[in-house]
Design a protein around this nucleic acid. Structure first.
Lengths: 146, 146
DNA sequence: TGTAGATACTTGAGCAACTCAACTATTGAG
DNA sequence: CTCAATAGTTGAGTTGCTCAAGTATCTACA
């Protein structure tokens, strides 16, 4: 059995550091979103819109209620970044399609967010692959506790 | 110069993994908070209350507006977990003091949250120290971009 | 075919968590 | 003594979310 208090301390440190890194990344993302006139949720939806896809799919990706997506997409549509296109094969479904401007804004968002992330991880140098591998092990765990 | 597209891909992976790990940790924390009848913000405030401290300090720790703390502490006080004690030396200040029940609930929260975090990081084995060291490098960076 | 149950989306009510501006009470510095 | 700064509160407003209910449509099966 290993040293329990030291173990505890390590887990606390890990938790704090993960939250800190995520916080920096999110803060950067939100700042760019704001520059582009988007709320964080709208920006998050936008970067997850590649091809045309039903609204339901977006709700699944964002793992939130469908009614939430309605509001977020309303905002994107009002800004002319996205349109709802009815699916002829299933008239319940509306596909979300990026407009030209929406596509442009989405690319800008991902590019700039990536640049910020790049800057954040730059200090690691080649160890970045190592960090990824370690985090991948954590990610591979099934959701613990019901 | 290194391979730009591959670099980009790595940064995207790192970003996703950090968000995923943070998401799991937060989800676990919020679940425990809910079990204890606390909202996430209340739980976060509670774990950051050690000794008696001015409300201002808590606002700084949580890096949020002072008026936000007022509401959160109202909730904790209504649940009997915390009391406001006026500072005799500076009558503008109110110190937040944990009640016995508040202390108990706080310990429970930290203990259980730690157990969940422990479970999340368990798959790493001894590599946990390595992960911490890498994340510490990231954390050491000054906030990039103004 | 007809109908019962599932599914996609919307609407409305409501809550949590936040910010900002304005206010009161108090303190500290000149 | 006065004036700017600070601690805390209040109220208005926003965002992001959930849940319940409703409409329209689809699917399966008896």
């Amino acid at each position: 059995m290993s040293d329990a208090p030291a173990d505890d301390q390590l887990v606390v440190e890990l938790t704090d550091l993960v939250f800190l890194a995520a916080g920096r990344l999110r803060q950067g993302f939100n700042a760019i979103a704001a520059e582009l006139g988007l709320t964080p949720a709208q920006a998050l939806a936008l970067v997850n819109l590649r091809g045309p896809a039903p609204m339901r799919d977006l709700a699944d990706i964002l793992s939130c209620d469908a009614s939430n997506v309605t509001g977020i997409v309303d905002g994107l549509e009002k800004r002319g970044l996205v349109t709802r296109r009815p699916d002829p094969a299933d008239r319940r479904v509306k596909h979300l399609v990026l407009t030209t401007e929406g596509s442009r804004r989405r690319d800008q968002l991902t590019t700039e967010a990536n640049a910020r992330a790049e800057a954040l991880f730059a200090a690691l140098g080649p160890d970045r692959t190592h960090l990824r591998d370690l985090l991948a092990v954590v990610a591979a765990r099934q959701d613990p506790q019901p």
